[in-house]
Design a binder for these strands. Sequence first.
DNA 1: TGCGTTACGGTTGAC
DNA 2: CTGTCAACCGTAACG
Length: 339
Amino acid sequence: MEPAFGEVNQLGGVFVNGRPLPNAIRLRIVELAQLGIRPCDISRQLRVSHGCVSKILARYNETGSILPGAIGGSKPRVTTPTVVKHIRTYKQRDPGIFAWEIRDRLLADGVCDKFNLPSVSSISRILRNKIGNLSQQSHYESSKQGPHPQPQPTLPYNHLYSYPTPIAATGTKVATPPGMPTLPGHMAMHRIWPSSHSVTDILGIRSITEQQSTVRPVKVCEGFCVYHDILMFISTPCVIYLFGTSLILITLYFQTPNGLLTVNSCVTAPSIPPYHHLTQVSPYMAYSGTTSAYVTGPTWLPPSGSALSPHSCDITAPLAFKSMAATRDSVHPVTASAL
DNA sequence: TGCGTTACGGTTGAC
DNA sequence: CTGTCAACCGTAACG
């Protein structure tokens, strides 16, 4: 909003610092100049600084316009609809593609040149804000199309949640942390992440998010975390959910020699500072409200096994993850406990 | 004295 | 919602 009062310059004219002169004055400056009046006289007559008169006349002579330039805003956007469309296409073809790979492809495919190539952070933002729910959308859409055959227990998850191992030469994007199993090359699966069958589907988090506003994805991350002075690697990628005041960390990374993917999860108790107290527990087992137990490596569970690892946590009040139970009971005997 | 240029403090709007 | 950043503004001073 324009201030009602401006400042007064040395000539007694009123101006608003940082704002253009009114168009009427700008027009008057040009008109007087065209009448042959000298700029210094225009300056005195209209009580506008001579520098301003000079600038406006110079611009008028150059562009033919009396209007001020565009104030504010950023440089021309590089994330044009066309670029976004291509990014979406890349993401659809390879849901696990990285932002920097998309950037390379935009350049290689001639969609962008080096002058209007979006930054990796811009691409990440597009993926997050505009395409982030692509996989879930496709999942929902496919769900609407008709009854889906239930995944068979004999069907390993790795076709859905597989990641490259260091031996999977071409697409190795994650270093294998110490202690993680390295698969033979023939077992290395093409990584699909995020999958249309996301971790939220498997563990039923989505249904909870739909039912409880307190559950929401917080962060996708990787790296190390400290638990009770023990340094642990959080495998890549993982999804952290905020459940009430507690934190649930879910990772999908491991692939056991028998082809089963280990779904790891961990929970922080409300009283524990998040991000510094992460409990990794076994796949197919309960979350725990306690923070006393942890598993530092992948665990294996027979497909028909029920769900506890040797390092299982104390199970507090069980909480059914409804959608998981509805859709994947036969495959994912995962339960969770309330925190 | 006239005028082009520049430093300065300010506003704006996309990101 | 807020901070950052780079565009622009007009004034004042300099040469």
